[in-house]
Amino acid sequence: MTIELRVNGVSHQLDIEEDMPLLWVLRDELGLKGTKFGCGVSACGACTVHVDGEAMRTCTLPVGAVDGADITTIEGLGADQAHPVQIAWIEKQVPQCGYCQSGMIMAVAALLDENPNPTRADLDDTITNICRCGTYQRVRAAVDELSQA
């Protein structure tokens, strides 16, 4: 069936199965490789993007369920690494291998949009993304910096 998506401001019409997860549509059909596959079962957050402004895990999200939606991926978050979260991430040198960081950044950006001054508990409860490199200390430091701004 034909699915319509707006991704990072560009409209696409795709002839694909509606049960194909958005993750694979983004990566393999649209060539947007910044969104990562980590677990495929909504357990790690590596595949997080914004769907109509809300953080969503895309590895189990059928593309049919977001037909017509406005989607922002890490590639569309900020030009030239200029989004405040990206700036803070560089400043605090958060990423190690970096593989989880697209999802981590998208999740944090959505949280801060909604709650500019999250408490530690807010952060712990909302950002359940897995980082195998263990960058949590720096994620916290970067969010602290962002919420004081």
């Binding site: 490789k33 910044g34 890490i74 978050l77 560089i90």
Partner: peptide
């Protein structure tokens, strides 16, 4: 600052899984 970090905040870092 590490050289590799900027590419890891905007999705441009290319991992094995991203190769086309």
């Amino acid at each position: 600052p590490r050289f590799d970090i900027p590419s890891k905040v905007d999705g441009s870092a290319e991992y094995g899984i991203d190769v086309e």
